[in-house]
Write a protein that binds this DNA or RNA. Structure first.
Lengths: 169, 169
DNA sequence: CATTTCGATACGAATTTCGAATATTTTAGT
DNA sequence: ACTAAAATATTCGAAATTCGTATCGAAATG
């Protein structure tokens, strides 16, 4: 190892997208192992350790990136307030409704689906009035939703969508 | 700092739950910052660094704990195969069905709900036959499910249930 | 009560991270 | 096109952390 530095090593990264590409690759590696050493990431991506350090701390400072631990038992403790199946009003696209609801921090999941509904969203919160408030302001208070099928959550058996990748080994 | 070691330091941990308590505390800290140094965790919990190291690697090896990076833009790239609304067969409880489906790694989310369905599950996968295989083996191949409403995912607008905690600062 | 086993601790070595100076690239202005 | 300024990237020694491994202690087993 310890290749002094390929002459075109960083060229390959400059020619492409100025920086996003490297960030994406860093993130990709950290998604596999959030504790991977900066020096190893640097080695794999053929840049200096300092660069990785700067990028990661920059991403974290700007809340672009979070490195967190997840555990199965804890994941199940997340209380889902409700799943809501939505049908958008005529003349409105699911995307438009999704982009509106996206801003609400209590909505943690929005999926455009085919079938009975147009959108399926997941709502979480702490206090008990959150569901009522949400329905009042975001659903019935808007005219872009034709129908809302509210299904209050009773118990969460599993919640680990992030564990899926690399679930092998 | 560098308190040599409180005489009753590990007593406080032995008296209580034998080990689960310490694991929970380690996880709690790593949930705040997945890259927190073992030595700092050790200091905060008043045990040796080696203990933290052993516990964390043990938890990780057993898939009890996972340390991953999450980024908002990337999180939306998760492809959800389908959401499925399930109604359990008569004489079967949602819990029983949930406990069966829980074992399938492609099921990343299972929620018991009130309303149109009994259970709502989320399915993810890589290859395109996964949905077909799942329906064939886990749904239609079982007699504990009365009805399955499959809603294939078209586009994921938001998926960040884990970002909700500590999303302040 | 001896023995085994499991986990915690200690400690030196290897590795990694950090701080800060230097070098390079990019951007902007003229 | 040239230069100045700003932003990134790299380097390198010092500090901190992690790792391998041996030792210790407590609980369990026979």
């Amino acid at each position: 190892m310890s290749v002094k530095k390929q002459p075109n090593a960083r060229a390959a990264q400059s020619i492409r997208s100025p920086k996003d590409d490297l960030n994406q690759q860093i993130i990709r590696l950290l998604q596999q192992d959030g504790r991977m050493a900066f020096s190893e990431i640097a080695q794999q991506l053929d840049v200096s350790e300092g660069t990785i350090r700067n990028r990661v701390s920059g991403l974290r400072d700007n809340n672009m990136l979070r490195i967190v631990a997840m555990s199965d038992p804890v994941a199940t403790e997340y209380t889902t307030d409700a799943m809501i199946g939505l049908n958008v009003a005529t003349g409105v696209t699911p995307r438009q409704v999704a982009e509106r609801l996206e801003r609400n921090p209590r909505v943690v999941f929005i999926l455009w689906v085919a079938g009975r509904y147009d959108l399926i969203i997941e709502l979480v919160s702490d206090d008990s009035d959150a569901l009522k408030d949400f329905l009042e302001h975001e659903i019935h208070g808007s005219n872009d939703i034709a129908k809302a099928d509210v299904m209050p959550g009773l118990k969460n058996f599993k919640n680990q969508f992030l564990l899926k990748q690399g679930a092998k080994e």
